[in-house]
């Protein structure tokens, strides 16, 4: 830099050093304070057992919890067989009405080939390996049949599904599949759960495509979804 005058003496550095020392102490103290405060910010974990009125506490004490209600199908389905020629009302018949006399073709795996009934059913389940009687009981079409031949009521359809989809069923039992409504804390209220067929069409179980109906309208965000990013 420019000219130094002759009055420049080294002894004059003490105010600098003193200021620096004070600032350094302040800084270290502040850093220490920050670390301390951050430690305190951690959430204190409480003892679950002694905590009042949570599901965990009530369960641990052997108390009564609200139920988890799993929705069930009403019963065996009915098939549309046309309109009443007089009243015009839709005519529904139960499965056994026809199947008491009509024998199903066990070789059939394709609904398209059926020309009298069920031709409209889209069947896409099991990658071609399944036929109707994999699930429907040929001895009683008003019920379902497990792989070991045991009868399963339509209302218990989850048991039927679970025999193949055990992983999904396991997740379901732990709330990780199928969704729910109501209360997370059963000490405070009940919970309702879907059954498999609420979301999955048993003949074509892949979850349907959907159209998103609610998008953010942020200022400046271009609604162009086609860009490559």
């Amino acid at each position: 830099m420019s000219e130094r005058t002759k009055t420049d003496r080294p002894g004059r550095a003490w105010p600098l050093i003193a200021t620096f020392a004070v600032l350094a102490i302040l800084l270290f103290w502040a850093v220490y304070a920050v670390i301390q405060a951050r430690g305190l910010a951690d959430v204190e974990v409480e003892d679950v057992a002694s905590a009042p009125h949570t599901e965990a506490a009530v369960r641990a004490a052997g108390g009564k919890l609200y139920p988890v209600q799993v929705r069930r199908p009403a019963g065996p389905p009915q098939v549309v067989v046309g309109e009443d020629p007089v009243t015009g009302a839709t005519r529904l018949v139960s499965c056994t009405t026809c199947h008491a006399t009509r024998v199903a073709d066990p070789e059939h795996g394709r609904t398209k080939a059926l020309d009298d009934f069920h031709g409209e059913v889209v069947f896409d389940h099991g990658a071609g390996a399944l036929g109707c009687n994999a699930c429907h009981d040929p001895s009683d079409y008003d019920s379902l049949r497990a792989a070991d031949g045991r009868r399963i009521a339509y209302a218990d359809v989850m048991r039927l599904c679970a025999q193949c989809h055990s992983r999904q069923h396991e997740s379901y039992r732990h709330g990780a599949h199928g969704g729910m409504n109501g209360h997370w804390d059963l000490s405070r209220g009940p919970r309702t759960r879907n059954t498999c067929t609420d979301c999955h069409d048993p003949h074509a179980p892949a979850f349907p495509s959907m159209k998103p109906t609610f998008k953010p309208i942020d200022r400046g965000l271009q609604p162009d979804g086609s860009s490559d990013h």
């Binding site: 420019s2 000219e3 130094r4 005058t5 009055t7 420049d8």
Partner: peptide
């Protein structure tokens, strides 16, 4: 800095 530390008169 030049004015007080280095006694730069002009500064």
């Amino acid at each position: 800095i030049p004015a007080y530390l280095y006694r730069n008169r002009a500064m």
